[in-house]
Simulated scan of single mutants.
Amino acid sequence: MRDGEATAMPTARRAPPPPPPWELLHLVAPFLDAASLAAAYCVSTSWNAAFGADYLWARLCVQHYPAALGLLRLRHLTDTDDQRQCSFSSLSHRRLFALFRSASTGCRALPAPRLALADVAFAVDISAAGGESILSFAVAADKTAQVKNAAGLFLFGVDLSDRNAAIGPGEWRVRWTAVRTSIREAPAAVLMMDAKVPAARAAGAIGFGGRGEAGVSARLPVPGCGGGRLEAEVVVELAGEEKLVEKVRLGVMCECRYVSADEGLRYLQHFLL
């Protein structure tokens, strides 16, 4: 060792603190919430036994999912051939709580639609009762102007004031078809509406100021997973005694409210994908 050099003294390592007494775990456990109790349950074998006690999770089931406790007395047949029976009585309260917790958190958000507005076009035909065409147009869904204050809804407006098309008197018919236009796949289409607008409704469309609107709605076809409450709606904004078409609004409704764009696309993908 050279002169002037200090000798390095080894530092003593502190011993890890001893685990809490077994009795302390049982005193703390009743004050923990579900997340803390589940985390403590995974620490070690002794903690697993302390924080996995059935009475702790039974208390949480009573607080959050009291109806779930009825499953512990429910019996049902699982195999009709040999009449074997099983029950939920063997299910622990911890597993029962986890089952209902996953159910309540797993259904909050629906997956994003696989179909985009850029892949969809709308084709609309408006014709007189005799079949002669009054107005026809096709427009890309993402190019239509969403109606003011309706951002995020499956509700679109198409300006047709430059067409100089007039509805005129009498009954008329609306046919709306949604078409998949993606270049990556073959075209597909679904008929959204083919409905008549009664002459009486059209006759009373023009009100004070020489403007008004007439609309029609129809139940949408039901996809395999349901959705029978959805309706397609077409509203035609009119002007003057000749009932010149100024704008056509296209939307999908459920129980008198417009659905979101994602809801509408999720519906269309059943038929277009």
Rank of each mutant, 00 (worst) to 15 (best):
A109H: 12
A109Q: 13
A109T: 15
A109C: 13
L110V: 08
L110N: 05
P111I: 07
P111V: 08
P111K: 08
P111L: 05
P111F: 04
A112S: 09
A112Y: 02
A112R: 07
A112L: 09
P113K: 03
P113W: 01
R114G: 15
R114S: 12
L115V: 04
L115H: 01
L115N: 00
A116T: 10
A118N: 06
A118L: 06
A118C: 07
A118R: 07
A118D: 08
A118P: 04
D119P: 02
D119V: 03
D119H: 04
D119E: 13
V120A: 04
V120C: 04
V120E: 00
A121G: 08
A121M: 08
A121T: 06
F122D: 02
F122Q: 02
F122M: 12
F122E: 01
A123L: 06
A123I: 05
A123K: 06
A123H: 09
V124Y: 00
V124A: 04
D125T: 14
D125H: 11
D125F: 03
I126Y: 00
S127G: 10
A129L: 14
A129I: 13
G130Q: 14
G130I: 14
G130T: 15
G130W: 10
G131C: 13
G131D: 13
E132V: 14
E132K: 11
E132S: 15
E132D: 15
S133M: 13
S133D: 14
S133I: 10
I134L: 12
I134R: 09
I134Q: 10
L135I: 09
L135N: 04
L135F: 04
L135W: 02
S136F: 06
S136Q: 14
F137E: 02
F137Y: 10
A138T: 15
A138V: 15
V139A: 11
V139Y: 03
V139L: 07
V139G: 04
V139S: 10
A140H: 05
A140T: 07
A141Y: 00
A141H: 00
D142A: 13
K143C: 12
K143E: 12
K143T: 13
K143I: 07
K143W: 06
T144L: 09
T144D: 02
T144W: 02
T144P: 03
